[in-house]
Design a binder for these strands. Structure first.
Ligand SMILES: [Zn+2]
Ligand SMILES: [Zn+2]
Ligand SMILES: [Zn+2]
Ligand SMILES: [Zn+2]
Lengths: 158, 158
DNA sequence: CAAGAAATGATATATTATAACATATCACCC
DNA sequence: GGGTGATATGTTATAATATATCATTTCTTG
């Protein structure tokens, strides 16, 4: 068993730095501009391993004295999700930083209902089973949403 | 290949009647009241094989001259989803009539982005793969959301 | 029928998201 | 380096989805 969720007390600054470094690379590769606002939003999303709502981001930006409106946040989120740097968690209406933006968007999300953290995995067996189920019924997949709610390992044992 | 989606020109009245008959059975078994409002909402959901938003239901009810407010619709939806007679499609913020309410809520949903129809399946291989993936990471599942968007068989061939 | 429980009505408001147009900033060419 | 079109952000308003709260009605059961 390998817990996907980060250990308590891990060096989260490293998570953030690494995520930002990756994002810079992706943006450069895609010739997309990682502007101040996008960087700010991205970094706010990475303040925790939880999913964050658009309005939580808005509040955080406004708390810093910026006069930001909803469209600004949603635009940044659209930019980031289009690049696969951030994923939308449909069952939470919230956004989550991807730590493997190279993957081809077929991930699954574990959402802990106790601590609120989210972890992403790209489980080949799940992907294969989903693709096969689709094939069985003659369905041509464009996108998948696999969100699993429950208790993370920490929360089942503490 | 067995298409889950109903054939064009099928006798949809039979779908509706059968769904209502099933719902009555479930309600009786659960000692829950299938009131006029709940029946009305349920039957509106079953007018098509698409998912329906709460406000579409509200509009439909109001169009019939009833003076219905959002909470009424949401209450009926809560009742129906709690009993498993209706499922919420998270990625659409919409609601869908279940045609196998006996199953234990681990279904998957195929959502056609062209015709808008939804079909539910309970694919054991997918369920097993998801449960295994969860076990692999020490995660205790409470609920799963598996929503697959793409083109149904009809829409790929017509 | 009376009393309590369950359901619905009614009003207000919270939460999530987008449309539309104005302004600012950037990239690129001359 | 200034003009120009493209990209990004600012600004205002509003759409779409959902819930809190309290009043009233309807149902169940003794
Ligand atoms: Zn971390
Ligand atoms: Zn947890
Ligand atoms: Zn039908
Ligand atoms: Zn279709």
């Amino acid at each position: 068993m390998t817990d996907l969720f980060p250990k308590k007390g891990h060096d989260h600054d490293r998570c953030i730095d690494s995520a930002i470094a990756q994002a810079e690379k992706v943006c450069e590769a895609e010739n997309a501009r990682f502007t101040d606002m996008r960087r700010k939003v991205f970094s706010l999303i990475w303040q925790s391993h939880k999913a964050v709502t658009a309005y939580e981001l808005l509040d955080a930006l406004q708390a810093e004295g910026q006069r930001v409106q909803p469209p600004t946040v949603y635009r940044a989120l659209e930019f980031l999700t289009d690049l696969g740097l951030v994923h939308r968690i449909e069952s939470l209406n919230a956004y989550f930083g991807c730590d493997q933006p190279d993957c081809d968007h077929l991930g699954q999300y574990f959402i802990c209902t106790r601590c609120g953290r989210v972890a992403e995995t790209v489980d080949e067996d799940v992907s294969i089973a989903v693709r096969k189920a689709a094939k069985n019924v003659g369905f041509k997949i464009q996108a998948t949403t696999v969100e699993i709610k429950g208790l993370c390992h920490d929360c089942t044992t503490h």
